[in-house]
Computed example of a mutant assay.
Amino acid sequence: MTKPVHRRAALQTCASAALLACFPGAQAQSTAAGGGRTAWPAWDAFKAQFINEGGRVVSDDDGGGQTYSEGQSYALFFALVANDRPMFEKLLRWTENNLCEGDMTARLPAWLWGRRPDGTWGVIDSNAASDADLWIAYALGEAGRLWNERSYRALSALLAARVLREETADIPGLGPTLLPAPKGFVQPNGRWRLNPSYMPMHLMHWLAASDYDPQWKKLVDSSLKVIRGASPKGFTPDWTVYDAKQGFLVDTEGKEKGQGTYNAIRVYLWAGVMHADAPGRKALLDTLAPMARYVREQGYPPESIDILTGQASGPAPSGFSAAILPFLRAMGDDKALQSQRMRLEARPLRPKAYYEQVLALFGQGAFEGQYRFTATGQLLARWKP
C-alpha cells in the first residue's frame, strides 16, 4: 500500500491569525457557529480550504487532489474536538460511501481515492492504512461517548475488531503488532516492515481500556517496543524493518534509507500529547530526548535525519515546528519551545499545504488547549466540561 513517502502535498500551519487572514470567510464561520460549536478558527480555515461540500478532504499533492483515508480520519477527530457534529457526520458518510463501498461494518476503508488513469474518480488502491483505521475507530468511539450516540460506539468496536483481524501479526519477540496495512508488509525470511508513526500510544491505551479485546493490551506493549527499538539514537525513522533473529534493522529498501522525515515527525507529536500519567510516557520521552536536543541546538527540526548518524538534511517546513510543540513542552525544554514558537511567527505556514495544516491542528491545537487526553486516552475537549 505504500503511502506517499513525504505526503509533502502538505505542511502548512499558519498560526490561527495567519490562517484567518488567508481565508477571510473563516472568521465569519467561527463567530457565527452555533449549536454548541466551540471556537477554533484554525479548524474553520481548514474546512474552507480542504473539505468539499460532500465531506471529502482534498489534499494538495501531485495526484491532483487525491484523498487519503488518513485525511478523513484526522478531519473526523478535529470535527469532534470542535464539537462540529454536522461536519463529522458528513465526513463519516463520505468515507463510508466512497472508501468502504457503502458499508464500514463490512470492510476497512481504502487508503487512496482520486482520479484514475482512465479519467474516472474512485478508489485507486483498495489496501487499507492502519493508522487511519485506528483514528477513525477512536473518533467514532469518543464521538459516541461525548455525543451519546450508540451507533458510533458500535461502529467503532466493529472497526477495531477488524483492525485486529486484518492489520496485525504475532511477531516473535514483539507479540501481536500493528502492521501498516493488511497486505504488503510481511517480508520473506521472518521480516516485517513497520511504521512507528502509525502507533500513537494514546490511541493504543484507549483501545486497551475500551474492553474491545484483550489483545489491545498486547499491542500497547509491542507499539512501545517498536518505537523505542526503531530509534536507537533517539531519532525515529519513517519505516523500520524488524527481523525475528536480528531485531530492528534500517529499512534499506525504502526510499528513505533509514531517514526520519514526514512520517516520523508524528512520533514526537504523539509522544507529546500523551497524559503525564500515561504508562510508558517517561520511557518514550527518554528515548526521543535527542530530538529535543537537536531542535534546541539548531533552532529548527530537521526535514530529514539519519537515525544512526544524526546527519540532517536541513530545516523542515514550519509545520514540523508546530507538530513538535507538545513534545518540547512535555520534555520541559523551554528554550527549544520558545524558539519554535518564534519560528512559527517569523515563518508562517503555507495556507494551501494540507499536511502542514494537519500538523498544525494537532500540534498547536494541543498546545493551545483545544484538546487533551487522559492517561487512558479519553478525549478532553475544550467544549466538554
Rank of each mutant, 00 (worst) to 15 (best):
E149T: 09
L219Y: 06
L11A: 11
P301Y: 08
L203V: 11
Y354S: 03
V250L: 09
P290M: 10
N195H: 02
S30D: 13
L112V: 00
P117W: 12
P86H: 14
D286R: 07
Y138P: 07
G332N: 04
C14Y: 02
G254V: 08
A157F: 12
E53G: 15
A209E: 03
K352R: 03
F46G: 01
R85P: 01
V267T: 08
W43L: 10
A323C: 05
A278C: 09
S313M: 00
K218P: 01
M291G: 04
A82P: 03
V220M: 05
L344D: 10
W111H: 04
Q298N: 15
R228N: 12
A316G: 07
P317D: 11
Y354T: 02
M201F: 15
D62K: 04
F320C: 03
R281D: 13
V186D: 12
A15I: 04
L108N: 09
F373Y: 13
R296E: 10
M342F: 07
P200I: 06
K217E: 08
P214V: 00
Y152K: 07
P302N: 11
A278G: 08
T374S: 14
L207K: 04
E53D: 11
F185P: 02
W383V: 02
A323V: 04
L328C: 04
Q357S: 09
P326V: 02
S73R: 10
S16P: 10
E101C: 12
A336V: 05
D221Y: 07
I305H: 14
F362M: 14
R343H: 03
P176R: 09
L337V: 11
S339P: 08
G369W: 01
R228K: 15
L361N: 09
Y212F: 11
P301T: 01
L194N: 02
F373N: 08
E167H: 05
R372S: 13
W43P: 02
S73Y: 13
L11I: 12
Y152D: 15
A26H: 05
L308N: 07
R382Q: 12
G63D: 05
P317M: 10
E303F: 07
V220G: 07
E297D: 11
L164G: 10
A312I: 03
A106M: 12
Y152A: 04
Q12L: 04
Y268C: 08
D133P: 05
P172Y: 04
G280L: 01
A271V: 01
R145M: 01
V5E: 08
D243S: 15
S223C: 11
